[in-house]
């Protein structure tokens, strides 16, 4: 159907182009700082994909990005520029961690779903406000969701330094979750966990949803042209609200999975900006399921390789950050003239 049927090749090129430009810029910076670009890239590739353990590390790093990318995509495709996934991620992580130790004596089959659903619900509720303001009053959601990020981060920071601080801990962290709340590891001893499979499945489900369901069709048409949608009888404001809340649910779930799958508690610095990276991933992947998966893996690779390659070279982390930044800028630039921000209601 429709725009989704762009030839796969040009779509792949669309995802690859910003990355390729970033590689070129990275090479220039490397050469200018006295490093040997090819050697560094070779190391980067092997640290990202060289063997089972490195691939597992990359996929682990890609896991939260799959879902924050998805959270951004479901909003963007409906013409909502929700930048609030970061806040939902924090809150979802906090809720899942708290449920994970507070209900620690529950069996895993009950505890894990309850903690994850709780995380998702809190994320969804968090964005009801911006959703209603946008749908009813046309209040710009960029501003409201951005502000809510600050509130969410401050709120969780206050909780983790106050009421929820683990006893005996000098730092801002909750107690660890019960072992029964931890998501199973897929490839021990690597950190790859069930959350990756859940995230991947959700992105795939989204791909099907967006192409084959009435709701997916409506959200896309609303995103392409809200005025048109209204004229043909699609309920635009309720679509806005629904997609905003769905985006929040996914953002909260992302945080919950991160807490139960990897960090096993909530700590200060819980997210280094996964919600914002998710925006770049959705833009880079043009809101398509395949694009999100590819972009999340690229960013996951940069993250995992960026850390461990320092063990084997003198390349500072900044080079990876420059490349990540460049990918994001080119992704956004592409977005700028590729498609409009979505018709406003």
């Amino acid at each position: 159907m429709g725009v989704a049927m762009l030839p796969a090749l040009s779509r792949a090129a669309g995802v690859a182009a910003p990355f390729a430009l970033a590689v070129v810029i990275g090479a220039i910076v490397l050469a200018a700082t006295g490093h040997e670009p090819l050697g560094v890239y070779g190391l980067m590739a092997s640290e990202a994909f060289g063997g089972e353990r490195r691939i597992a590390a990359t996929l682990t790093a890609a896991t939260p990005l799959l879902l924050t990318g998805l959270a951004a995509a479901v909003a963007f495709r409906s013409g909502i520029f929700n930048v609030g996934a970061e806040g939902c991620f924090y809150l979802g992580g906090m809720v899942a961690a708290v449920l994970g130790f507070a209900l620690g004596d529950w069996p895993s089959v009950l505890l894990i779903p309850v903690a994850l659903v709780g995380a998702a619900i809190v994320g969804g509720l968090w964005l009801v406000g911006p959703g209603v303001l946008r749908a009813r009053l046309g209040v710009d959601e960029v501003v409201t969701t951005l502000m809510l990020n600050f509130i969410a981060v401050d709120l969780t920071s206050w909780l983790v330094n106050g009421p929820l601080l683990a006893r005996g801990s000098a730092n801002s962290a909750t107690a660890p979750i019960a072992v029964g709340a931890e998501l199973p590891r897929l490839l021990p001893p690597t950190t790859l966990h069930l959350g990756f499979v859940i995230s991947l499945a959700l992105v795939a489900l989204y791909g099907l949803w967006s192409r084959f369901t009435v709701a997916g069709f409506r959200s896309r048409i609303v995103g392409l042209n809200a005025r048109f949608s209204r004229a043909v009888g699609i309920h635009v404001s309720s679509t806005f609200l629904r997609m905003m809340v769905l985006s929040g649910l996914i953002g909260g779930l992302a945080g919950g999975i991160h807490a139960l799958g990897l960090v096993h508690r909530f700590v200060a610095g819980f997210s280094p900006g996964y919600g914002f990276t998710g925006i770049a991933i959705a833009l880079l992947g043009r809101n398509s399921a395949l694009g999100i998966i590819l972009a999340a893996i690229v960013f996951g690779a940069l993250s995992s390789a960026g850390a461990t390659m320092q063990l084997f070279s003198d390349v500072p982390i900044e080079i990876v950050e420059i490349m990540q930044g460049a990918v994001m800028i080119f992704a956004v630039a592409k977005f700028g003239f590729g498609q409009a921000r979505g018709a406003r209601a």
């Binding site: 682990t60 990897l262 610095g269 280094p272 960026g306 461990t308 320092q310 084997f312 982390i317």
Partner: peptide, 21 residues
Amino acid sequence: KPVESKDVVAQAADILRRASD
């Protein structure tokens, strides 16, 4: 070697194991 990461919280086990390996 110093090892920095923006995602240092989440990469705990990964970095420690990589260095050990």
